[in-house]
Write a protein that binds this DNA or RNA. Structure first.
Lengths: 210, 210, 210, 210
DNA sequence: AATGAATGAGGCTTCATTCAT
DNA sequence: AATGAATGAAGCCTCATTCAT
């Protein structure tokens, strides 16, 4: 066995991940139809044909990219919730800030923009994403809100809609970050943005102070 | 003049608008690359070649669609602000609810999703949109916030970031509505959603009580 | 009858000729396939549809252009020959110089280049041209040469091939003039060129002296 | 190495040359606009898309065909001149007959017809051809003529124009051969034609005897 | 496992031709 | 007789996919 066989082997085993990372970048940047498999292969440092050793088609690659990209988001979010102890607002705080720290600056952060752009072309993928990420993410936020309302920490409001309003600024942060060129995405300081969002929520959720 | 001469003339004069309306629908649904000009033509009830009597290329059609789609948004928003008299929060309220009433349910409401999906493929278009819509829309909201902070109606906060947070839920409403299939877009009751957003803002903007 | 009715009528009657003149120019410049009927119509100052009032198709227009363009060449050449009295070389001289004077600088001078470029795409047209121009033109030159050889004015040579050699420089003059841009067509002084050709022929046809 | 590996490799390396040969034939026959890339591919025994592995566009293919087709003409002609020793007329004789032997019956012989037909549509290509073939070919003939005039072998005449007259019948031979169908191109015996041209020149260049 | 040459379906675009006015 | 809007066939070109090596 040659001295760099293990290195070679490791590379081989990483091939799918490398290809998916390259594909994610390009899908986010150019959309599904606008991405050329040749560019994906080149960015991953392999030939076009090699792609087909690991993925049956462009669409299969796309689905894999989405599914793999979605897992860390779930793991991250649910781990945070499971470990939480403390007030409802503190949970919200943790969820938003820690989730950003774990996901927001990684390659996976482009997924929401990709979903938004392509959901109507790939309804199955959209459903998968909805069931596995949106629904579970909403449940996380929803339970925190419900707990706060039950304890009197928050004013009673329609929980489902409030969930949307808590999530929306975070999603927009991610989406704009990957949709617009630098300087047009509105936010060069995500931490500050999230902090201010929480600041508004702190009193906002409490509701009319007589 | 024959009885249907005016009818024919009207059709001709409306052709560009009809084509652009058809194109907007399809661009929003399928994205730029995923839209076939033949489908645009068919939806507008003409043949493929007819498109080229009015637009030089697919990209020219796209640019026209964006530019024309942007104008009503501007006109609507700035009209609302110009006519306003009253408190800062009331202005916010009017801007968000009236703007939705005027734009939110029209065909133009798909534009933000389209921008988000295609901005990186069409930087010039993105810049145009940024300069003509985002910047001016932000200025509108920003001046209302500034007025409220100056008068003591709102707590002092970073205005630019607060603008983002006021706008984000509205944008997400529009984007999800055109990105996801019915039942997955989170909101079947936009008025309620906007009202709740304003409700959270009412106390949120005021800031820490006591 | 309005005062300019006759003028109007005259224009109408000239339409086909105007269209053919415009078409000839463009066919010579761009070739058959490279010429757009819209450009022909525009150059003639009419709309595209009007062309079809006078010509059944692009190919019909082309054939008409060739046929009409060929007639003056014939008339000119045969008139010269019929009127001639004098030596054989003087006839050659007259044919080449007078024919140039009558045709060489007119719009019809582009026809040979057009034939050369398109003959293989339009064999019928090529045959027509061959029968009606080449054959008759060759006969003209050939009879002059034959007469000179019979009278001892010229050395005896293969008449058919000599005809080619007498004609070739004149054809090249025409062809290059319409094929190449100014400054690349070799000849800015056709009269001088023709005179020198005749000068070479004068002794050349006579043949080996002593 | 498998038995037909070298065969396959050779095929690949020959692809561009095979494609250009096929393209040259068709461009000469039908002109640039009249040639379909699908036909070029088919004649070379490959599919449409394969063309684009080697040439960026139809126009790039055309330019390559011209440039490659021009090189042998140059090499042939200048080699003949460089090796020459003897009288000026003998040089002319060699240039015309040997050049014909080396080029006249090959595929490259169609190039002049192609140039004549397309020069006005491709001015850059025409300039290239003018600079690299016409100018150098003329210089070759011109120096032979000049030498003959200086030595008294030829009568003194305008050299540039005489060059045109020496070349013209050869060019016409080539052009007609590729422009007209068999039986209409005037010459089925090029050697005889060239010999007679030289025969006329022999005394013609000497000029008026006594 | 990897390559990259080859394929061909499909989309954008042009333009000869038609036709209602 | 004239217009010019409309059509649709056809050609260039791209790129996902295949396959021999």
């Amino acid at each position: 066995m040659s001295p760099n066989a293990s290195l070679r082997k490791r590379r081989k085993e990483d091939r799918p991940a490398e290809l998916m990372a390259a594909a994610l970048d390009l899908f986010v940047e150019k959309g599904f139809a606008g991405t050329r498999l040749e560019d994906v292969a080149q960015r991953a440092g392999v030939s076009k044909g090699t792609l087909y050793l690991y993925f049956d088609s462009k669409e299969a690659l796309f689905n894999n990219v989405i599914q793999e990209g979605v897992i860390p988001v779930l793991v991250e979010g649910e781990g945070i919730a499971a470990r939480h102890q403390g007030s409802a607002f503190e949970l919200l705080e943790k969820l938003l800030t820690n989730w950003w720290a774990g996901i927001g600056e990684t390659g996976f952060a482009g997924i929401p923009k990709l979903i938004v752009a392509e959901a109507r072309n790939f309804p199955d993928m959209a459903r998968f994403y909805y069931e596995n990420v949106i629904r579970r993410g909403r449940a996380l936020i929803g339970s925190a809100l419900q707990r706060g309302m039950d304890s009197g920490e928050f004013a009673r409001r329609d929980v489902e809609t409030t969930v949307d309003l808590v999530i929306a600024p975070i999603l927009m942060l991610l989406i704009l970050r990957h949709a617009m060129a630098d300087g047009q995405n509105g936010q060069d300081n995500p931490q500050h943005y999230i902090a201010l969002h929480l600041d508004l929520l702190r009193t906002g959720l409490k509701g009319s102070q007589l």
